[in-house]
Design a protein around this nucleic acid. Structure first.
Length: 198
DNA sequence: GCGACGATCCGCT
DNA sequence: GCGGATCGTCGCG
């Protein structure tokens, strides 16, 4: 039976553990009466103020980043390249700006809706791989910023599935982060084809 | 006020 | 493999 993850789960202070633990969980949105879901296949951990790749590095506190400092279990969504709404889950306790970027899912429910939102006639990895693409497929936009991910609109279920081959590797698109770009804080299910970059 | 650019994606070559 | 799309945010002045 699907077991919704609680707010307490997201208040864990180990964002790297959580990023890995979320692989295999099911992310669902319920928007305008429509349900769409997918199994999380790829994530990245961003470890707050001490992480050069994190938007809250060195305690940067702006209108955009302030949501990251909230208590875990809410969404941090921001516009990237003026086009893509990237979906993150804020974690850790209030004052710690940790977050997890969800980079890919394997579609499970409402696949036809996701195809419609993405303008795709076929179901292949491009439907829900890549952080911009999953937001579009799930109907997530900036209006969901700061919203709870333990709610009736967005939630994550433990469906009793644990991938046996989780690859740990470096994060994508953060070359500006110096040595922190080398950290193995990106995780993906090796056995899934729904991964942005192998 | 303003210029530069990004945790990306897609289409064309 | 490469460049354009497209705009909010940020840092500087």
């Amino acid at each position: 039976m699907p077991q919704p993850l609680s707010k307490t789960y997201f208040e864990n202070d180990d964002v790297v553990f959580l990023a890995k633990d979320l692989i295999g969980k099911q992310l669902t949105t319920h928007i305008n009466g429509v349900i769409t879901s997918g199994i999380i296949t790829e994530t990245e951990a961003y470890a707050g103020q001490g992480d050069k790749a994190c938007h809250a590095h060195l305690g940067r506190f702006t209108k955009r980043t302030k949501v990251m400092y909230e208590s875990g279990g809410i969404a941090y969504i921001y516009l990237c390249y003026g086009i893509h709404h990237l979906f993150n889950i804020v974690t850790n306790t209030k004052g710690n700006a940790d977050a997890i970027l969800v980079r890919a899912i394997e579609p499970t429910l409402g696949i036809d809706i996701m195809q419609e939102r993405r303008g795709k006639s076929k179901v292949d990895k491009t439907l829900t791989s890549g952080p911009g693409n999953i937001s579009k497929a799930l109907g997530i936009s900036k209006s969901h910023n700061t919203q709870s991910v333990t709610s009736d609109n967005i939630w994550i279920d433990d469906i009793g599935y644990k991938p046996s081959n989780i690859k740990e590797t470096t994060r994508i698109g953060i070359d500006y982060s110096g040595e922190d770009a080398e950290l193995p804080w990106r995780f993906y299910d090796k056995d899934s084809k729904f991964v942005s970059v192998k």
